[in-house]
């Protein structure tokens, strides 16, 4: 049977594909919330030694990545009354295929990297794949809110890599990173509200006034 932490990492990896394959923005946001919950559980499962710091980190990650940010983004799409990504720059099938390619490349790369153990090899591969898929979402989708979702994926991927270094990166920094990510998404959300009000749309393809002429 699959060990629990491997299962969680695979879950994180598969949730990327839900984001890639769905046109419904709310499903995309819910996938990132689930991904956040899996990420919050991972440090506890990987090193089951409990300390005050770890409890705080697990709870903080859970609160920020799987409750606060998704709630905020769901509210944003409700107020802007948009539901779907229509006509992304690369179609859904195409982006799923690109995502699969990213996973294949990530596993090949991770095998060649000098990492400590097989369990961190899986972490590194999943991390590279998630980062790549996050970038893919940012680049190929038109709705501005999808760019925020892509950014959340990107941060989740980096967090996965950070888990392999958890004994080296101090606790304070991890909290700082969490706080920064939260404030970042919050500021993006506020700007999103205003873009929606000014342009009557959350289509980032409309933001073309500032160009070199």
């Amino acid at each position: 049977m699959l060990p629990l932490h491997d299962g969680l990492v695979l879950g994180v990896l598969l949730l990327n594909f839900f984001v890639l394959g769905t046109s419904r923005l709310s499903s995309g946001i819910r996938s990132t919330a689930l991904q956040g919950a899996a990420l919050a559980a991972l440090p506890a499962v990987l090193h089951p030694v409990w300390s005050f710091h770890k409890v705080l980190l697990v709870l903080g990650t859970l609160a920020v990545k799987s409750i606060l940010i998704p709630t905020f983004l769901l509210r944003a799409i409700r107020e802007a009354s948009i539901r779907r990504e229509v006509e992304p720059h690369v179609g859904f099938v195409g982006s799923l295929l690109l995502g699969a390619l990213a996973v294949a490349v990530a596993f090949t790369v991770a095998r060649r990297l000098p990492v400590a153990s097989s369990e961190s090899e899986l972490l590194v591969a999943a991390s590279i794949a998630t980062v790549t898929i996050g970038l893919l979402v940012i680049v190929t989708r038109r709705k501005a809110i999808n760019q925020v979702i892509g950014y959340v994926l990107l941060e989740n991927g980096i967090y996965l890599y950070g888990l392999t270094q958890s004994d080296r990166v101090p606790f304070l920094v991890e909290l700082g990173v969490l706080l920064d990510v939260f404030v970042g998404v919050f500021v993006m959300g506020i700007v999103l509200f205003d873009i929606n009000r000014e342009f009557d749309s959350l289509d980032s393809a409309r933001l073309v006034h500032l160009r070199e002429r």
Binding site: L135, Y151, G184, M188, V191, I195, E198, V208, H209, L210
Partner: peptide, 17 residues
Amino acid sequence: NRRSLEAVWKYLVLSSV
């Protein structure tokens, strides 16, 4: 205004990445 909104959006997305 519209122009500064566009500018701040570009700034946020690019520098966040």
